[in-house]
Amino acid sequence: MRKVPTPTPLNHALALGSSRKGAGEWWAERLSAIALIPLTIWFAASVIALTGSDHAAFVAWLKTPFATICMILLLIALFHHTALGLQVIIEDYVHSGAKFAAIIATRLGCFALAVAGIVATLRIPFAG
């Protein structure tokens, strides 16, 4: 692990010192989690209510401003939370150079999916 031999064990434990950040991401993960509680329950309830319904019913549901707004908020919170959560998991288990590649891929992927989801959602009321 160590590239340069460090002189003392304390030196090793202190390493480069504290980066003095991390609280922001921690808060972002909690905030997105709190937002997701009502949003996902709304989504689950709506999907159950839509069981067995056709495209027209689906469009009618998503067309309502309330559903459109909730869906967009859900997509934002969901993919924000997903990106943060996956990043922590990668940092925990991946210790090679692949780590940064994996984190970047996760972040870009989540961003792309969120945008795709939002565009699809908006097309229904505006183009549908």
């Binding site: 959560g85 989801g117 699809a120 959602t121």
Partner: peptide, 22 residues
């Protein structure tokens, strides 16, 4: 959490399908 991430992808697919038509 990881399983749900996979379903989040499916959810986007589902929305895109809905936006693309019946």
């Amino acid at each position: 959490g990881v399983i749900l991430s996979a379903f989040a992808v499916l959810m986007v697919v589902w929305l895109i399908a809905a936006a693309s038509g019946p």
